[in-house]
């Protein structure tokens, strides 16, 4: 979505400030996914398809409820089902709606080399602008949650937009609209954090001692948050990262390396040029030719 509908805070591969003349009146937003209220109906997946006009290929069943099995360029959100036997011996069905977490410190945006292909709006949403995407896949390398997918059809990267186009005109994301149990809600990040805290108190009173909010600090917090019954073990939810961060290798690659390498290249080129003008061209003089000639003749005598 272009600037006229949402203010941009950060753009990929851009060293100058983002357009910032308008004061961002919009507060930061967040989607809150309460896993304890989710019934796994996949209405959110369907709503996502409908709104974003996505039609994935019909896959094959593999004996589990996950369908499709993974995020794809055509499936920007996927419900992941896991069966967990708790210490009491009871079975818990933990269902997590997977998709882009809209990190406050987005690894994809940091890694992206194409100017303006990934933006972060003032409200916190991280969005891909496919018209600027060059298909390198660095966003996949940078993402701590394995979310972006490169389309085989056009070699562009796709993921959940948090329905930035709906949000821009004051609507809630399609998945939120469709959720029949109220497991997905949308509002300001502040409001969602507050609502989550209330729900966590509620869950604790119902015996989920470790209930909590998943808003990982390692990526500066996220604009998609989970209420988890087992917040102490996010990995139970189909491998949700316990402490996600942008990899130190990605940070080094896209951090100090860039100015240091570019600076060194410029300095070496400059040193070569300056030494040339200092000592002058290294020419072969006539006496070199004469000496060489003499030595050659002696050798051949």
């Amino acid at each position: 979505m272009p600037l006229q509908s949402l203010d941009i805070r950060r753009r990929s591969a851009t060293t100058t400030p983002s357009p910032a003349a308008r004061a961002a009146a919009t507060p930061e937003v967040a989607k809150l996914i309460d896993t304890s209220k989710c019934i796994g109906c996949k209405a959110c997946q369907t709503a996502c398809m409908e709104w974003n006009d996505l039609r994935d290929e019909i896959g094959t069943t593999t004996g589990v409820y996950d369908n499709p099995r993974d995020l794809t360029p055509q499936s920007w959100t996927v419900m992941r089902f896991s069966e967990y036997e708790n210490p009491k011996g009871d079975l818990e069905w933990l269902i997590r709606k997977d998709g882009c977490m809209h990190c406050e410190d987005p690894g994809c945006l940091k890694a992206c080399p194409a100017p303006g292909a990934i933006v972060q709006y003032a409200n916190g949403i991280v969005d891909f602008h496919e018209e600027n995407c060059i298909g390198c896949g660095y966003c996949v390398t940078g993402c701590p949650f394995d979310v972006p997918r490169i389309s085989k059809r056009d070699h562009k990267a796709y993921k959940c937009t948090l329905c930035s186009d709906r949000v821009a005109v004051g609507l809630e994301p399609a998945c939120v609209k469709a959720c029949p149990t109220g497991a997905i809600s949308y509002g300001t990040k502040e409001q969602m954090t507050h609502d989550a805290a209330e729900r966590v108190v509620d869950l604790k009173s119902r015996g989920f001692e470790q209930a909590g909010l998943y808003d990982p600090a390692g990526v500066g917090g996220t604009h998609v948050m989970y209420v988890l019954h087992h917040a102490d073990q996010p990995g139970l939810y189909s491998g949700l990262a316990a402490k996600p961060t942008v990899s130190p290798m990605v940070r080094l690659w896209k951090g100090a390396t860039k100015p240091l390498a570019l600076g060194t290249m410029v300095l070496v080129a400059l040193a070569g040029f300056l030494n040339y003008v200092r000592v002058g061209p290294n020419e072969t003089r006539d006496e070199d030719e004469d000496q060489a000639e003499r030595e050659k003749e002696q050798t051949h005598v």
Binding site: V268, A269, G272, F273, N275, Y276, P281, N282, E283, T284
Partner: peptide, 12 residues
């Protein structure tokens, strides 16, 4: 860069 600088510098 070093290679090109040296090649340009050493005439011939």
């Amino acid at each position: 860069i070093v290679h090109v600088a040296a090649a340009v510098w050493v005439k011939g």
